[in-house]
Every structure is written in C-alpha cells, then in structure tokens.
C-alpha cells in the first residue's frame, strides 16, 4: 500500500506541474459558467410557418398562398412547411430538409389538431431545465475522459524521460503501476464529476452511488489510456489516435441526446452506460442496474488489456520477469 500511495502522491505532484492538467481544470470552470450563464433554462420553440396552395385539408391550419411558386418560395426562404395537391389529388408536403419521421409526426399532429387532447407525464420529477439536460454528457466527456488524457500524458512523459527504464528494474511491478494510476484518476475524476454535479444539480442526489459510478468511469477511461499509450513514442501520434478514439466514443452522446437516431453499436461504446447512469442518478429515480453490467464488462476487459499492454510493451522485459 505504501508503494501505491507513493505512486499516487508523486503522480499527483507531476500532474500539478503539468500544463494540460490546468487546461482541463480551467475548462471545467468554463463549463460550469456556461451551464449557468450561457445556456438557457428553457428553450422557446417558435411554431413553424405553415403555408398551402389549393390544399383544402390544410387550409384552416395554414396560411393560404396565391400560387405554388409562392409556397415553394416560403419553404426555401422562410423554412416554412408547405402543402400542395398534385395532379392525382395526393397531398404533397414541402419541407426545408426535415427527417421523414419529423414530417410524418407533423402531419399526424395537424390531422389531429382539431381534437382536444390531454397529456400525462409518467415521470414524478419536474421537467429538467434545458441547461441541465447536458450535465450527464458533460460529466462523462469532461470529468471522466480527462483520466484517459492525463494518464496518457503521464505515461508519455515517463517514456520520453526514460524513467520507465528505472521503473522496469525496480520492484514496482505492473500490478502496482496500474493500481497507482487507477487510484489517482478515480480520485481526480470523482472530484471533478462531483464538482460538476454540485454546482449544477445541487446536493439532492445519491452521492455514494454518484461517486462509485464516477470512480468506476474514471478508472475505465484511465485503463483505456494505459492500453493505448504504450504503443506511442511521443505526443504527436498519440494525440491524433486519441482524438479519433475519443470522437468515436463521444458518438454515444448522439444516441443519448437523440434516441430516434441512435444506432445499436452506439450502446456498446464505453461511455454509453455512464450517460444513462448519470441521467438516472441526477434526474431519475436512481441507478438502474442494467447500466452497471456493461461498466463491469468494460472494466474487466480493459484491465486485462491494460495489464498486457503495460507488461508486454511499456514494461517490456521479454517475459524474463514475472
């Protein structure tokens, strides 16, 4: 334990003297400021302009134009939605590039527009303010992913300064090296995530669950750094590959924020279960265990790969040492 504590302590000292660490920390503050002062609490969505020409079914709900050309002009220039009837008597909906789903939904709602409806929410919580809706994404893609970036930065420095050679012939060993990095980044990631949650959502959440998930998430992303970094000599190649990998990982955010456009494989990205877990912890009724299983699977897989990568590549000893 003393050895792991020393690893954590010295790595933290190295981080405090690392410019990237401070860039990430300042980014955290900027994000918090943006949530409070830049993003609105609610979004006012103005109703779309509806126009029609010789389309009696929509005449009541739209502005009647004098010609088909006028309808087309309004759609092209004012982002309006137009209704026409073609030679076969079929209604044609003109739109400025909306998805098929959206157009269909609009038409259905217009057709039902005259009937009175009643809405009922099954979520006992109040509606989530717009500026807080993205907090789960910001925690996942800032507080947790910084473990990946900072773990990689520390390892690259160890390579470039050749201190890794000194570690290879010390009794540190692969297990303690990995454990030291995981403990450090679980603590830092949890602290950052905790600050983001505290200054956005407030105190009213299950902090124990929150910190456990944050520590696990930070450890997973630190492990990804431990898996990838040994294969790179310097920051140049590493940074490019990391950018590609992190961009891919962030695609889970697309599925999270817009479920209708979600593809199946996005659910298998490491960040996906954290988005839904944070959503549940911060705004829902608590953590769903279905989110935890993929986290544990990722942890096991990455732990195995990180051991191989650090042992075989970073601490390369050719198998002579156990």
């Amino acid at each position: 334990m003393t050895a792991i504590f020393a690893l954590v302590q010295q790595d933290f000292r190295r981080l405090l003297k690392n410019a990237l660490f401070w860039v990430v920390s300042v980014t955290l503050i900027l994000i918090l400021l943006a949530i409070h002062f830049v993003f609105p609490k609610s979004m006012e969505v103005s109703p779309p302009l509806l126009v029609s020409f010789q389309a009696p079914a929509y005449a009541q709900v739209s502005q009647t134009m004098e010609s088909e050309a006028a309808v087309r002009k309004a759609v092209a220039e004012q982002q309006a939605i137009g209704f026409l009837v073609d030679d076969q008597g079929q209604t044609v909906v003109l739109h400025p590039g909306l998805s098929e789903k959206t157009v269909t939904a609009l038409v259905v709602s217009l057709q039902a527009g005259l009937e009175p409806i009643r809405t009922e929410s099954l979520n006992p919580q109040e509606a989530i303010p717009f500026n807080l809706q993205m907090v789960p994404m910001l925690i996942t893609f800032e507080a947790l992913i910084l473990s990946f970036i900072l773990a990689g930065t520390l390892m690259l420095a160890e390579k470039q300064e050749e201190t890794v050679k000194a570690m290879r012939i010390s009794p540190i060993g692969v297990h303690r090296y990995i454990a030291g990095k995981l403990v450090l980044f679980a603590l830092i990631g949890s602290l950052y995530a905790g600050l983001m949650a505290l200054f956005t959502v407030g105190f009213s959440l299950n902090w124990l669950t929150f910190f456990l998930i944050s520590a696990l998430g930070s450890a997973i992303f630190a492990l990804m750094g431990l898996v990838i970094t040994p294969f790179f000599r310097d920051m140049n190649g590493w940074f490019f590959s990391t950018a590609v990998l992190l961009t891919l990982n962030m695609l889970s955010g697309v599925g999270y924020s817009n479920p209708s456009s979600q593809l199946l494989w996005m659910k298998f990205l490491p960040s996906y279960p954290f988005l839904s877990a944070y959503d549940d912890i911060l705004f829902g009724s608590g953590l769903q265990w279905s989110s935890v299983l993929p986290m544990l699977v990722w942890t096991g897989l990455l732990l195995f790969l990180a051991y191989l990568s650090v042992h075989r590549v970073f601490f390369h000893k050719g198998g002579a040492w156990v």
Binding site: A3, Q10, K17, E161
Partner: peptide
C-alpha cells in the same frame, strides 16, 4: 540520466525509496 524532471531531486529519491520493501 533518467529522472522525473518535474519533481525535485528529493522527490525523485523519495518516490523510488517508497517502492522498496
């Protein structure tokens, strides 16, 4: 020489000293 350049001389030694049993 392969030492942690961001650590002090003392910290470099203390770091490695803690690794030994």
């Amino acid at each position: 020489p392969n030492v942690y350049s961001s650590l002090t001389g003392y910290e470099n030694l203390a770091y490695f000293a803690a690794q030994f049993s």
